[in-house]
């Protein structure tokens, strides 16, 4: 599935749900919540997290988790505000798309 344009919203949501979390747990969270639908190369999550940090939407620090040193990410206040705005945008978008394409399969299409 092509997640272009939606990865930021997914990552911000995962970090909101998990609180402070490292990249691996964010990916596991996305995989579980999407029931395997989001089959993206796992490595792509890290550049996206770095970009969100560069833009001030997440902050990160090294922490020891289960006796392992890991980079842990959390939302910043700007990240929470962006998440609220993106969630509103997505709901409007999804409602519009749903209204256009309809809830049932189209005749003649498999």
């Amino acid at each position: 599935m092509d997640l272009r344009g939606h990865l930021d919203l997914l990552l911000l949501t995962a970090l909101h749900d998990l609180g402070a979390a490292h990249g691996y747990s964010v990916i596991v969270r996305l995989r579980e919540r999407s029931e395997g639908a989001f089959d993206l190369p796992e490595g792509t999550v890290y550049p996206a997290l770095h970009r969100l940090e560069r833009d001030g939407l997440v902050a990160s620090e090294w922490a020891t988790v289960a006796s392992r040193r890991r980079r842990v990410y959390r939302l910043t206040p700007d990240g929470r505000a962006t998440l609220r705005a993106k969630r509103r945008e997505w709901r409007v978008f999804a409602a519009g798309m749903g209204a256009v394409i309809g809830p049932t399969p189209m005749e003649g299409l498999t």
């Binding site: 190369p41 796992e42 490595g43 792509t44 770095h50 970009r51 560069r54």
Partner: peptide
């Protein structure tokens, strides 16, 4: 294999940082 190609990852990391 799940992590993705090193070349793609490096390109994205350079762009992100």
């Amino acid at each position: 294999a799940r992590f993705g190609r090193a070349a793609d990852l490096a390109r994205r990391l350079r762009r992100a940082n």
